[in-house]
């Protein structure tokens, strides 16, 4: 199959697949960040049960294989009378996994600050809120930029789980198997999808590095 044949037949689907992958990645990443923030608050708060819940959440979702989780959402939850459509299942899977890693990134961001600065803030008469707003959060966010950039790439790659359930239109990985089960597509459909992933990952990396350069804290 030549590239022109491939594009004339599947060009539209590639555009849709790329947009679909981007959209799933964006939504997943946004919600994962939000959830990661909440989980991190749980994990640092002085209320023990919430800490335990936060830690448990992170251990569960950073260690569960994505497919295993997706299968549970897609095939097991309906038995428990919880039904989501396929795309939502994929997005929820990515959010759950990514938020666990996101929380780990936030935690290590907090860890880079050091007890000394916290004590300095306290000595200046800052209450907990001010200390958080002026000292902890700005620094934790800045040092989380690079890890979060890498997490964004990981989210992009994890959306490939969408190929394991019938999505229509399929996303970039699913499309490769879709094309190959219909025609002998050869290497080309694979290469196009791969380049779209790698290109997107590259752009995410460039953006992340640019942000990091701007906000990085010299220590």
């Amino acid at each position: 199959m030549s590239i022109s044949e491939l594009l004339s037949e599947y060009g539209d689907m590639y555009v849709q697949a790329l947009l679909g992958t981007w959209w799933m990645s964006l939504v997943s990443f946004a919600f994962a960040m939000l959830l990661a923030l909440i989980i991190t608050v749980f994990r640092v708060c002085p209320i023990k049960p919430l800490r335990v819940v936060g830690d448990l959440y992170v251990q569960i979702f950073r260690n569960i294989p994505g497919v295993s989780l997706l299968i549970i959402l897609v095939y097991a939850l309906p038995y428990l009378k919880i039904v989501m459509d396929y795309r939502l299942c994929v997005i929820v899977t990515v959010i759950l996994v990514a938020s666990a890693f996101g929380s780990e990134n936030f935690m290590s961001g907090i860890n880079t600050i050091g007890v000394g600065q916290i004590e300095a803030a306290r000595s200046l008469g800052m209450g907990f809120g001010k200390m958080l707003r002026l000292v902890v959060i700005p620094q934790a966010l800045r040092s989380a930029v690079l890890p979060m950039t890498n997490l964004a790439v990981a989210v992009l790659l994890t959306t490939a789980l969408g190929s394991q359930v019938p999505l229509s239109p399929p996303e970039l990985t699913g499309l490769v198997s879709y094309i190959n089960t219909r025609t002998v597509g050869g290497i080309l459909p694979f290469v196009i999808s791969a380049l779209m992933y790698a290109g997107t990952a590259f752009v995410i990396g460039v953006i992340g590095n640019a942000i990091d350069k701007k906000v990085r804290i010299v220590r």
Binding site: G114, G116, E119
Partner: peptide, 9 residues
């Protein structure tokens, strides 16, 4: 403090 503890950011 011994370790200065200036706000690094």
């Amino acid at each position: 403090f011994q370790s200065f503890n200036l706000f690094a950011h």
